[in-house]
Write a protein that binds this DNA or RNA. Sequence first.
DNA 1: CTTGCAAATGACACCGGTTTCCCATAACAA
DNA 2: TTGTTATGGGAAACCGGTGTCATTTGCAAG
Lengths: 350, 350
Amino acid sequence: MKGVPKPRNKAVSKPTINDIARLAGVSKKTVSRVINRSGSLHDDTREKIEVVIRETGYVPNPQARALALGRNFLIGLVHDNPNAQMILNMQQGILEALRDTDFELVVRPVDRSSPDMLDDVRSFLVRQRLYGVVLLPPISEIDALARLCEEVNCKYVRMGSSVLDDPDHMVASNDRDAVIEATRHLIAQGHRRIGLISGPHGFNSAQVRRDGFEFALAEAGIKLPRSLIADGQYTFESGIAAAESLFDLQPRPTAIFACNDEMAAGVLFAARSRGIAVPEELSIIGFDDTPIAARVWPPLTTVRWPIVAMGRSAALKIIGDATSVSPEDQEPSTFVSTLVRRGSVAPPMK
Amino acid sequence: MKGVPKPRNKAVSKPTINDIARLAGVSKKTVSRVINRSGSLHDDTREKIEVVIRETGYVPNPQARALALGRNFLIGLVHDNPNAQMILNMQQGILEALRDTDFELVVRPVDRSSPDMLDDVRSFLVRQRLYGVVLLPPISEIDALARLCEEVNCKYVRMGSSVLDDPDHMVASNDRDAVIEATRHLIAQGHRRIGLISGPHGFNSAQVRRDGFEFALAEAGIKLPRSLIADGQYTFESGIAAAESLFDLQPRPTAIFACNDEMAAGVLFAARSRGIAVPEELSIIGFDDTPIAARVWPPLTTVRWPIVAMGRSAALKIIGDATSVSPEDQEPSTFVSTLVRRGSVAPPMK
DNA sequence: CTTGCAAATGACACCGGTTTCCCATAACAA
DNA sequence: TTGTTATGGGAAACCGGTGTCATTTGCAAG
């Protein structure tokens, strides 16, 4: 008898659509019309039913709706665990949009490197009949995932991806501009030997950030020898390793731009352990404005992108047409990142 | 016509229980018996049906089951956003336990200070017919929430709460012992003037940690003047403020135990901005071993508690009897926290 | 006063499972 | 051989909504 769920519970039973129909003296179907704002019905009837619904505190059973519609009122969040804070902020934004709707958020981490990843996601979407999914970077860059969503008729929004020509399925920030601004900031301070710690190959965000960096240098007429570019993996440890390699250069760079805060924190850590003073001997700029950026010493100058707002926008794009939000309120697809100046940048020593 | 979900999708239709029944030449009910391991049926019949299920890749429709059973296959995670990393690690642990089961994880942040909190949670549980919920600290300490779960017949597990007499509904770590160990470590290094930055009043974890600290000092015969105890709120900023007040003492404490890493990072930050060398002039110990502890300089000595394992255990407690896990494998209810020695502790200067 | 047509509403099947209840068959005791 | 249990298995109702389609009603035009 193991594995048998308990019998249904009468104690917490709530009014059903039949109760409402009986109380209002109409048919189930008419009540359904009121709930879904579908079909046409008389104002008197609608009002009468709405009163009954309000008085009884009736709420439609999501499971029954899901079964009848073949579609659940769940939004999936699919991610590959790049950064705890980012995921959580994204959740926060999505949940803000879902608050006071019938939707719930289901979290689904996946393993990008697994060959079963696509099948995992497919079975997740199909089995749960998800209403929609939000794809977080970096897996949002995988086109096959987007095609999969189309295929199984599941709405989707890709975060921070490069598919900029499709505002319905895409929410991004202007990383490139922000990196350019950050790099210009270093240049304006007088830095000329600026190191870059890149993100991992194959990541769109890494490519975009690097592009911006190189553009800003070229714009200022500064040459960028290959040796000043160190590969990073977006992790703290890779930041340390990359910093070490840059520190070994003669002369040392006077500033380092790290493509995310984790790595920037690694640079700072490595500098400390070598006794390199920050910002006096070395300026550092990071990216993301995760909490760590403000908690290290000196606090890191970095680039902030509005994750929470982007999460909210992504969710609204998905549920927009199912809620009473007016369709004119198109959610923005691109968000502006800004440079946050803290204490890790100073002019280079003479 | 707004707000009307799309009609059901035939394209992605999967085999139903009727298909299986037909292919196996039995009735729906018999297939259901195989799925639920309920009732008694002939081995031959079972095997025949299992073959068909395997060949067709049939998976029961969760929505239909949820409707029929009046209970969903969803686990809720209810929290009040204390700490991003903690929540995410907990999610990870829970999801590990849920992997390869029919359960999904639904996230639900609540506002502890809102008067509607209980109603929010109630409607969440009732509407979604959740199978079970995991309550994270600090709201796991609210007894009314546990009673609510009982009332609506929803399984629950409270994390890190003080209700130690109920191992079925409780997963905790031995914070007190760990704090004692940490404090002894400071004492063994020669510290005698040790400051404490407490957690917020009303938090069980704060109380337990403070108790452990005071016990260890008393045990060593060290007096603890009230002035050496500063109130904190578990936030970085409150850690800075508390540290400032301790720094103003004459003489200054030679070591500070902060009740979590966020505050410990604040102490370190405040020390840096005052030019107090760590660990030479001031030793610091934190609690939680969040990522920040290893990323600041010097890396923080702290106490690690196995959040992921605890999350997994919590989830298994909830779904244990619905899966094929043997009931004998009782999940542990208490976990051991350990002291992680890094670079923020040294003997006091003479 | 019909006729015509659109709006308003209801009857009923259906979504894909589970449960209740009842029957058929086999096993066993008398 | 017959009566009595166990036991495997099926028919139909049910969970609580939604879709389809037919029917009724209201009102303007012919």
